[in-house]
Design a protein around this nucleic acid. Structure first.
Lengths: 339, 339
DNA sequence: CGTTCGAATGTGCACGGTCACAATTGTGGA
DNA sequence: TCCACAATTGTGACCGTGCACATTCGAACG
């Protein structure tokens, strides 16, 4: 038995080749499932690879192929339930497709930060980008930098450009609004997401559209920041006037804060005020009272998004781009208004 | 002006070198801030790089240097608030240090899945791994595979091995338990996390330790799965007997479900039952009633974890490994027992 | 003015794969 | 038996960057 030289370097295909008595190219063929390899040869090579615990070097492969098999994710508020579950789904889908995922977080939304994050991604020669913080501004920067790779976004309205995955937020918001109107509410407030966020915009539009269609007078939506804290403070402010019987919040966290403020004021839900949220986070069913909300299937969204992007990178069978229709989940936080 | 040949390939250092009238090595030196470069030369090269929109090729660099500057994150339940915020912090810290992060999700905990996820990470030649799903089993697999790179874990007790970052979960849990005992409770249940999770184990230990130290008789903890749904169902079961006045839940989500069940049974919180959670997720302050809980600084945890790992990869000034002490946040969900 | 030495720059190759092409082997039909 | 042709395997170059070493430059010094 020849001495097993204790080389410090990890084994390469040439090491495998030498021990298997073949050329390095043959080893490469085994790695890539080339059709024309004799079974016996393949087995022998495989055996040596196992013995050596050989791992292909990704950098070398990327360099030589000129392709990184990495996609980038640009995300804001990635610790929130929605984005986080989408990211997880994207990662799983990517891994399944043999891709790697690299995430860059947006801590703020000024152009410099966005550009820095994009730079970080581009530096890794990503082949595509998924944008999860669909702020208008991000797209401006994307367009302006004339990004050289395909990109898609989650949670857009689908109307922005060809890159968006249509999740029909508008009809989700309309359904929620319609639910309140059907119950008999006429004085309804809308607690919207931050200005500049595409999904906040879409939900607000859905609200306004439905109110308009049903001929119910509206007040200007309040722009929030998605947090429960904001919902609480907004609620306190609103309750000083108390000229409404229902509120549609554009996410569940703000709805939670809102309900907190309403109870603090000694009012009952839904007796005095009905509340509707958006997202259906897993906790929503256990809020007090359990929250009526609009369910979004974030993981499915992530998967679809990934499929879309992969299709852009290397056109395949063509993905179904039809919109996902969100579903209204009626729980105990809504009821007819008291007069 | 020479024709600007429309090459399809991205510019390389040699392209830059040619246009700047220097050797490719000089360009490389500019890239790496080599000290011995004449300012004028440096400026000229930089100019050409800007003109060409030159981006260094990461794969080539990794191949040549033999280092990927990538760290891997192995994570379970990455869509939950705690892990998600830690991951975000890790990514930020890594980016700041010039590292890239690649995440692999664990959808289940059987050895094959863990091994596959690790494989995925190793295939990218990561230089270090952060384990966020600190299940015992994961460590077994890690040890067994004799992973060739340093790794650290969040949220361990610090006692497991030298890889753990000490977040003193035990004293956090003790503080929570002590709070209940001090209020006068003597019949206290503990709703623990899943078996095999290190942090669940640590919190349980803290609970049992404190109960023992204060000479309060204990019942066996109930093993949950971190979800609000589980908390709700566990609560319903427990209330059929109702031989307790307080419950310490090992996370906020389960505490939420628990409170839901308690209210469903027509009982009041904290009048009939006091509830304590763990984590202090942003929503906890707006639960009904606002939840007494133990605050964990997840972002700080992520940052520290990253510092530790980077220090392992290339020993530096030596990081402070002292434990983070969690803080008890008393809100309205706890009070003295009614007799 | 030649020498010396450090600063600044250039040369060639290695890294570990893949690609294009060449060479060899194997198989069936004339 | 010999040849055409496909299946299988080998050869060498190349991807873009960094390293080790060689070379040139420039200023200070004897």
């Amino acid at each position: 038995m020849p001495a097993d030289l204790p080389k410090s370097r990890a084994p390469s295909i040439r090491d495998v080749a030498r021990l298997a008595g073949v050329s390095h190219q043959t080893v490469s063929r085994v790695l890539n499932n080339h059709p024309s390899i004799r079974d016996s040869t393949k087995a022998r090579v495989q055996q040596v690879m196992d013995d050596l615990q050989y791992r292909p070097n990704r950098a070398a492969r990327a360099l030589s192929r000129g392709t990184s098999r990495t996609i980038g994710v640009l995300s804001a508020s990635s610790s929130q339930y929605g984005p986080a579950s989408s990211i997880a789904a994207i990662q799983d889908a990517a891994r399944e497709a043999g891709y790697y995922v690299n995430t860059a977080n947006l801590t703020s939304v000024d152009p410099e930060t966005i550009e820095a994050a994009l730079d970080h991604l581009m530096l890794q020669s990503v082949e595509g980008i998924v944008v999860i913080a669909p702020q208008m501004r991000v797209f401006d920067v994307l367009e302006q930098l004339s990004i050289a790779v395909p990109y898609v976004t989650l949670q857009s309205t689908g109307s922005l450009n060809e890159h968006g995955l249509s999740f029909d937020q508008i009809s989700g918001a309309r359904a929620a609004t319609r639910h309140l109107i059907d119950l008999g509410h006429r004085n309804i407030y809308h607690l919207a997401g931050p200005q500049d966020w595409i999904e906040a915009e879409a939900r607000m539009r859905g609200f306004l559209d439905e109110m308009g269609a049903m001929d119910v007078p509206t007040t200007a939506p309040i722009l929030g920041d998605w947090t429960a804290d904001f919902g609480y403070h907004a609620g306190r402010e609103l309750l000083r006037v108390r000229d409404f019987t229902a509120i549609f919040s554009s996410n569940d966290q703000m709805a939670l804060g809102l309900m907190h403020a309403i109870r603090d004021a000694g009012l009952s839900i839904p007796g005095d005020v009905s509340v509707v949220g958006f997202d259906d986070i897993p906790e929503a069913a256990h809020f007090w009272p359990p929250l009526t909300t609009v369910r979004q299937d974030f993981p499915e969204l992530g998967r679809r998004c990934m499929a879309l992007l992969l299709d852009d990178i290397s056109p395949g069978p063509g993905e179904h781009r039809e919109a996902i229709i969100p579903e209204l989940v009626v729980r105990a936080s809504t009821g007819p208004p008291a007069f």
